[in-house]
Structure formats: structure tokens, C-alpha cells
């Protein structure tokens, strides 16, 4: 799938997919990577080490710093794939150097799939 580079990098990993938007500030534990927003589809799941796939970000601009905290704690997602990346997540990926691609039809991705994110070329592919 051809999308658009938000931040560079190339990784392969396991996808964690949700159809719900994510607010990193208040919605994700900055120390563990666990989604803590009440009633969220991913509540209780950890984004750590995953290819995190979600439509777009929401919430406070402080969310950028949560992604940075995750990176420093080695709990960040391996990469981020969005339908549309919002400024909070975009800035978070840049300052934390997390590969990110948007303009992807995320309905074609499923949790558990092995996915390659080639952010340099804006390409996301299912490996198996």
C-alpha cells in the first residue's frame, strides 16, 4: 500500500490495529505503553514494540511528549500507520524518531499480521 512518509525508517513487526482514534496524553501510560483510556478498543493492550495502526490522533498537544517518553523508556511503538496523521502524533514521531506513514487504507490491516513499514518510501506491506 502506498502512503505518505511522516517520519523516516524501515521496520518489520507485528501489527496492533484499532478503528478508534488514540489520545496519547491521558490515554496511554507513558511508562509502560499500555492504553489506559476507559472503554477504548485497545484498553489494557500495550503499544510497545508494535506496528501501531489507528485512524488518527486526538487530544492534547502534550501527547507528543508521551510518545517521546515511551521512546526513552524503550516502550514506544515500532512504527505508526494512520489513515491521517494529526499534528500531535506527527510531532511526537519526529521528536521520538518513530517511523510513521499515513494515507493508508487501514481497514486492510489486522492485528497479529506481520507488516513491513518502509516509511522512507511511504510504503506499508503485509509480509505474510
Amino acid at each position: 500500500m502506498q502512503g505518505r512518509k511522516i517520519f523516516k525508517g524501515k521496520v518489520v513487526g507485528e501489527a496492533l490495529v484499532t478503528g478508534e482514534d488514540i489520545s496519547f496524553y491521558g490515554g496511554c501510560d507513558p511508562e509502560t505503553g499500555e492504553i489506559v483510556e476507559k472503554g477504548h478498543h485497545l484498553e489494557g493492550k500495550s503499544v510497545s514494540g508494535k506496528i501501531l495502526v489507528f485512524p488518527t490522533g486526538k487530544g492534547s498537544t502534550v501527547g507528543s511528549y508521551v510518545l517521546y517518553a515511551l521512546k526513552k523508556a524503550e516502550k514506544a511503538p515500532l512504527a505508526i500507520v494512520n489513515r491521517t496523521t494529526d499534528p500531535v502524533v506527527a510531532v511526537g514521531c519526529i521528536i521520538s524518531e518513530i517511523p510513521a506513514v499515513d494515507q493508508i487504507d487501514i481497514s486492510r490491516l489486522e492485528t497479529g499480521q506481520r507488516v513491513e513499514v518502509d516509511a522512507n518510501n511511504g510504503v506499508v506491506s503485509i509480509v505474510e
Partner: peptide, 13 residues
Amino acid sequence: GVSYHNLGEAGLE
């Protein structure tokens, strides 16, 4: 994003 209360250690880093 100036209050340490909002920024936290990661923001400061």
C-alpha cells in the same frame, strides 16, 4: 508546555 506538572521528565529531556 512549561509547567513541569504537564511536561514531566520526558518533556524536560
